[in-house]
Design a protein around this nucleic acid. Structure first.
Lengths: 116, 116
DNA sequence: CCCACATATCGACGCTTGTCAATGTGACGA
DNA sequence: TCGTCACATTGACAAGCGTCGATATGTGGG
């Protein structure tokens, strides 16, 4: 439920004080990033060749159990930061750069770029 | 203890896969941001006139008790995101823009700017 | 001095979350 | 069809965190 219907865009921190709803939405997105395992998974996918990585290649290097990795990947997908594509019995993940850009813009001191 | 000795700089997500230590450090910093009350406090200080705000003017609009607000402000200061200056019996807070920039750079897809 | 005020600290409470072992669900190959 | 492999889901547990009331600390005014 509530599968990344969010659009954090257009709310730079320095342009206007956030109300409770905006803050809750942005906090929820940042909370997904604020975990070592998920940051590592995201960076591993981001730096993978061809821009995508198979889940089977992520479990061992991240140093967590397979269910834990699957759980983190699901959170990243649900937050719109990763895209999942099943091929046969493997799951391939790729980054959604726009989503990361939206976060960075939300943290901008000024009115952000011409994105909005 | 460990009062913001961090320098998250120079580790863009998309340039190389983060190791456990880098990920833990960046996650700790993001975790401070990933809370509605702290995001609101940060944005209120950022948009305040003269770039600084008195704690007494933050308690009521943020809708939390005074001890809770004080706690969140302390976390933001400890993370290096806010600067605290005591004047008489009041505490004035101002943002540390470089710190926010460092976070945004760490989330950059490429090798970031010429900051490093 | 003593009191009022602004802020910080303490102690406690529920809720959230990261983690794993065990199990479920499909997809391929023999 | 059966077994194996890749991945997701479930259930449970400990640790962390946001919150508040009560209290401590420190500052200025009368």
């Amino acid at each position: 439920m509530a599968t990344a219907s969010n659009d954090v865009c257009c709310a730079p921190l320095g342009s206007a004080a956030l109300d409770e709803d905006q803050a809750t939405e942005l906090a929820a997105l940042l909370k997904v990033l604020a975990d070592p395992a998920r940051l590592r998974l995201l960076s591993m996918v981001a730096t993978a060749t061809d821009g995508e990585a198979c889940a089977c290649d992520l479990v061992e290097p991240v140093g967590r159990s397979q269910p834990t990795v699957s759980h983190h990947l699901s959170l990243l997908v649900e937050a719109g930061l990763l895209r999942r594509e099943k091929r046969g019995r493997w799951a391939w993940y790729s980054v959604v750069p726009e989503r990361l850009d939206a976060i960075r813009d939300a943290l901008a001191p000024t009115g952000a770029g011409a994105r909005c």
